[in-house]
Design a protein around this nucleic acid. Structure first.
Lengths: 337, 337
DNA sequence: CTCCTTTATGTTTACGTAAACATATTATAC
DNA sequence: GTATAATATGTTTACGTAAACATAAAGGAG
């Protein structure tokens, strides 16, 4: 593979002239420039980012840490997020290094990922709520942005995040159910260790309270965002003496599982049980019945997060976090009482 | 950020001793080793892959080229593929560099991607069927594996690929429809520029022929693998004077769109029209009616592809291509005539 | 106790790039 | 026509790592 030196030799100049041509520096004679460009073409030369990175101490690449815990990684939701991420990276000319973070290993050594591959910054998707590793990279001033998991608890202003308004969205969903006349509203929650799981639960509880409905512990079932748990938790709820008339699921997959459970028991959605989801994944539209759910601007979130990250890297400043608004999409899974 | 030299200074040895400790070379005194390890821990040192890569001329990272054409990239199918890819990378300790290949730019300069970032090999997902760029990297002996798009036409033995048995799978689907008594079978095809689109079409045609059914051009509609085209192409088919009784769609998304079109017209699936898909994406199970479709081992394909790639890289040999078998999953979208 | 091997460690060099510095040539000012 | 600035180019050094080579000390054989 050709290096600057090879190009230089071929063009009959010093390699520094080649470097200058590549980096579009001034003070290169047009004739020389053409000679060099010709040599570059003929040799099929492309700059080596390793060398450049070593020299300049930046690589024009970001590390994207994604939770690999099978179900999360394999949802359309995360894919949409990634699409947004990719889009901005492409615009900014940044490379994307994927760091699949296995949750079984317990902790993720962000510092290691950052230092080893020498990425310019990290995009951390849905980290655990209690993530001491994050504190380490905050202290070391590693540029990073948290996407989908805003660490509300930590209250560390230095942690920049981009997230949907999970509390607001959940609140909107539950308020809608209440407005339709429902009082016995259950919640199939997400993981408590993940921020959006917590926040949606928070939105559920606070909205009930605001409407003077006391929440029953029986009505809250913690799931793990998978279709199958949605199914089983719904079965549990159906087995209760005082069955709820409506269920707010922390995500669409669980909502879809819940619908299946209801229908399997011989009951109907929304006839007997109304169900609302969260995310508005593509399948939500095609479920039977089509799912009423909280839409979030997933693609834009990914896009925005990388934008903030790269701005942080380039301008070396602390950007403001962004909370993206959500919107209730009314379809056919809720009945008015 | 600490370098080997910093560690060396702290431990009171030469940096070469540090390098030896890191690379687990023999001939390091146990006492010295402990001193070095202590210094590494205290400084939070991690090897810099840029330096290492420059020196060893390998980076232990692969480039993954994915088509970003929105609809493809955002399907669960590709995500499953990626999961498999990720899984093997994790096992092998390889980094994953994502190269979103924008199709609007026309051609993808694989050589450039390879040389710039100095990845050890490339995994190319669903490249265009006619891809002259591939020939270039074949000639330059860049290690790569094509995933999902086997370039059957090119017949270049040097191109290693991993793909589902698209022809066989399509054939199985169509044969099933025929066995259920259908004779008027239409096909909503995928892009002809993508290998699996072509192959599924091929399987469709050849199976009709084998059963002595002549195919009608009217019955073949080229789509682009999206739900929305499935919808419109189905509408077209419903408008035909001699309406088909069954439709084989080149993927599940289009099949789901087709179902929607049928139902919107006031007809039923499978009552009036039987539909079979391809891929067996998660939503296939939850569609209404649940979709009969051709299951492919998507995750395993991704896994296998990286395995081949890394074997190629390490052993510098030409692995055999792999065609993964498919399996028809019978659900409820086909009626027996 | 000398010679030779083994073990432990240090030094030089190279990978590809670009900043910093150095030099040569040309143009401009007076 | 000399001094000064601007332009074009080359040379040295550094980034972090590890292979290759070099050296020193210790252990073993005779």
């Amino acid at each position: 593979m050709a290096s600057q030196r090879d190009v230089a030799k071929k063009a009959g100049v010093s390699f520094m002239t080649v470097s200058r041509v590549i980096n579009k520096k001034i003070n290169v004679d047009e004739n020389t420039r053409q000679k060099v460009l010709k040599a570059i073409r003929e040799l099929g030369y492309y700059p080596n980012v390793l060398g450049r990175g070593l020299n300049r101490n930046k690589t024009e690449a970001i590390g994207v840490v994604i939770p690999t815990c099978s179900h999360l990684f394999s949802t359309q939701y995360y894919l949409e997020l990634l699409r947004g991420v990719e889009q901005y990276c492409a615009i900014a000319g940044y490379g994307m290094l994927l760091y699949p973070a296995r949750d079984d290993s317990g902790m993720i050594d962000y510092q290691k990922l950052y230092q080893e591959r020498r990425v310019d910054g990290m995009l951390i998707i849905a980290p655990p709520v209690k993530d001491d590793q994050l504190k380490i990279i905050v202290k070391k001033k590693v540029p990073f942005v948290v996407l989908d998991g805003h660490q509300a608890g930590s209250s560390d202003k230095r942690i920049v995040f981009v997230d949907a308004d999970n509390r607001g969205g959940a609140s909107e969903a539950v308020q809608y159910l209440i407005d339709q006349g429902h009082k016995k509203i259950a919640h199939i929650a997400g993981w408590k260790t993940v921020a959006n799981g917590r926040d949606r639960l928070f939105g559920y509880k606070s909205t009930l309270k605001k409407n003077g409905i006391s929440h029953k512990d029986d009505y809250i079932r913690e799931g793990d965002f998978t279709e199958i748990t949605g199914y089983y938790k719904m079965k549990d709820l159906l087995g209760l003496k005082d069955r709820p008339t409506a269920v707010f699921a922390a995500n669409d997959l669980m909502a879809i599982g819940a619908i299946r459970a209801v229908q399997e028991t011989g009951l109907g959605v929304p006839g007997d049980i109304s169900i609302v989801g969260f995310d508005d994944i593509p399948s939500a539209k095609y479920s039977n019945p089509p799912l009423t759910t909280v839409h979030q601007m997933t693609f834009q979130m990914g896009f925005e997060a990388v934008k903030l990250l790269i701005e942080n890297i380039l301008q070396d400043k602390w950007a403001e976090s962004r909370v993206m608004e959500t919107k209730l999409v009314v379809r056919e899974s809720v009945k008015s009482l």
